[in-house]
Amino acid sequence: MNIFRFAGDMTHLISVLVLLLKIYATKSCSGISLKTQELYALVFLSRYLDLFTNYISLYNTLMKLVFIGSSLAIVWCMRMHHAVKRSYDKEVDTFRHYYLVLACFVLATLVNEQFTLREVCWAFSIYLEAVAILPQLVLLQRSGNVDNLTGQYVFFLGAYRAFYILNWIYRYFTEQYFTRWIACIAGIVQTALYADFFYYYFISWKNNAKLQLPA
């Protein structure tokens, strides 16, 4: 594992911790899209089907468990926890995420490495992860103001994707590794979705001002 991959995994982990911290400390999930969180839970459940059949390393197994567990816990909190669910911005979180699921499923049955249940599920999870942030970005755009922890959550998620691209470039030159073209294309699309957010994040950081997205 190279430094970029590790940095990517760590920023991903930090993003999850920031989100859990926000929900736990403020007992509020305002500014967080439940639809995006549901999509991530689906992403991890369909990607890590190989959890018990395909052992790679203790690190991989633990990280998979953390991502499945934390995404389910966040969805549970936002739906069931009496205080947290009251702060959920239901009226603003109206993205039709079922269409994303349907489109990614159709794409996965058409474009995959092998037409087997596991490979179709893997491709599905890759496509769905690429677009899963959309309901969250739309929610932030609509509400305009972004609180500190929510901004940091999205920033770390975007950083995770950027590090993964550096990881692939590194692996391409050091290992002649370029078999994961489905993941690479989807990963580039996914990272590009953050470009706009990053732009405003850095402006607010440079001016030491609160993060605001233009309507």
Partner: peptide, 10 residues
């Protein structure tokens, strides 16, 4: 068909 490669990334 080629066997699908090991997926060592998360």
């Amino acid at each position: 068909t080629e066997p699908s490669a090991v997926k060592d990334e998360l």
